[in-house]
Amino acid sequence: MPQQKLESVEDLAAKAKALRRDVLLQVYKAQSGHPGGSLSWIDIGVALYYHEMAVFPEDPANPARDRFVLSKGHACPAQYALLADQGFFPKAWLETFRQYPTKLQGHAENHYTPGVEVTTGSLGQGLPQAVGIALGLKVQKAAQRVYCVIGDGESQEGVIWEAAMAAPHHKLDNLCVFHDLNGLQIDGDVKKVMNINPVPDKWRAFGWAVKEIDGHDFTQILEALAWARTVKGQPAMICARTVKGKGVSFMENQAGWHGVAPKTEDYEKALAELAD
């Protein structure tokens, strides 16, 4: 089927709610995976896949596609939910997440999953690959854009800052990155584990055009994406304040839900909270 497009923030929010259920389905079925960080960026993902990007579910490698790289590849349940709903592969695949033999690997791998551009999951691998995609498109004078989501714990990786230098140096204005600032990582509060603040100032200092938004407010996400298209001569960074586990009351702001699957009781409780 062709790409589904949604215009209103209400429709986007409803889609995000439905796909949150698909995230939990995967992690519940697998009894393994990363719900917290998937729920923190899924609103951004819905805005990208249903409003911003051109993608081709029946022809994933179509050269006219915009590119998306989930640098925080452990949060792939959200990407799989998006891709399945857009028709890149059957929704039934979601129930096979992390279970041999599956097309939906525990961390995103392009070789397995239609619609996944590159392999990520080992932190820091995605952003520099997104930089390379943007360079490759520029060299060939292609008009497509590159989008990427990185995590805040992830940005403790040194290579993130290699990419942070490279993208402005090579004037990659076809690159738009979201920094998913949910404030938590496996060992707890990002500020306590290894403080990365001041985040927006760091990106500005590296030469990026920077905007700060609430990463769960679709109006702000869409405005930021429209703004990013106007940025010329440098890459755009959208610093998105988010809530880890967003949408499930008992998962919100709990580092303990970084990489833990819900048992049946919690799963049903979460689905009830996310009911239409």
């Binding site: 820091g124 360079l135 990419a163």
Partner: peptide, 23 residues
Amino acid sequence: FFNMGAAEQGMVAAAAGASTTGV
């Protein structure tokens, strides 16, 4: 030609990304 500076990890990853565009 892209000089990535003394940053080999990002360079190799960028090459992997670039290869997906057909170069």
